[in-house]
Design a protein around this nucleic acid. Sequence first.
DNA 1: ACTATATACTTGGAAGTCCTACAGTTGGTC
DNA 2: GACCAACTGTAGGACTTCCAAGTATATAGT
Lengths: 168, 168
Amino acid sequence: MPVPLTKDPIAEIQRNWERQGWQQAAAPAAAVTAIMRTQQILLARAQEILKPFKLTFARYEVISLLSLSRERRMPMNKASALLQVHPTSITNAVDRLEAAGLVERQPHATDRRAMLLVLTPRGKQMVDRATAALNEQLFEQTGFTAEEVAELNRILANFRQRAGDFKA
Amino acid sequence: MPVPLTKDPIAEIQRNWERQGWQQAAAPAAAVTAIMRTQQILLARAQEILKPFKLTFARYEVISLLSLSRERRMPMNKASALLQVHPTSITNAVDRLEAAGLVERQPHATDRRAMLLVLTPRGKQMVDRATAALNEQLFEQTGFTAEEVAELNRILANFRQRAGDFKA
DNA sequence: ACTATATACTTGGAAGTCCTACAGTTGGTC
DNA sequence: GACCAACTGTAGGACTTCCAAGTATATAGT
């Protein structure tokens, strides 16, 4: 990692796959690996930017979601569904957000099984600052051109829809 | 997650960002989130396919790399560089691969700090079967069209190069 | 030749993800 | 009205990733 490689290791995977005679699988195998690596790079950047706020990207996503909702509150199962992560991941994130005073758990008015997540004023302030930092330092300079962003959004939305993430 | 959402939650993020007046950041924010979600879906599929082999994707990547190298052996630091993960991740994966009898650690001939990873015959057999499964069940039916795969490979290779993953 | 810096790997710990299993609630069905 | 299936959130465990620190070895500079 310190010294950049002289060859793209993912292009190397594709060449290896082709050399083995797996023509059909070669390019998609490279694409899958590239997506995983890209995610890793983007996540690392986000975490770096969020470090001064003592937030991780997972926790940022939770409070950002709350911040954009009406009333700045939401049942946990809805947060889980919208962020598309396992319920226990939300539990984990909320435990830490609550310890940091950014979010509160409140009983649901009509369903005693459910928990309502409520963004505190401190939480709101934190989201605003963290979002400004992410916008400036990550989203407005991802390293993708505007065309590439549009292409990615198109291709990945198709994929996610076919994968069953959402309907029509 | 059980019931598919009626709206794409990532498109929702983009709309929310635009509503807040963050025009420049909106589309890239959606793209970043889409990449993360897509990685999650692909990783889950890979893990599912590898489960019968008692392999995780991280461990598969290590033995696949060894399998494609001359002599089926490689120093750990080279594996770390090529897979672009932290050295400790390799240590972790190799501990488990070694326990499963798929890989062996051998001393390096000329550098006594270094460790040589050697794929065992059992390991080779396992890679071959796992690769066949991944090719059939994942890579040959990712849900991307051939054009989309080509676009992804082009866009993500540019990105990774700009991010410093490799030179020229 | 000797010291200082750099490299290779491991250990221990923090954080995230998921899964399984469980307790408490809810709600439709007979 | 009682009962069972489905749902909500959480505890515990496995796994991965990274970071920080430590040990051993190699290499460069004086």
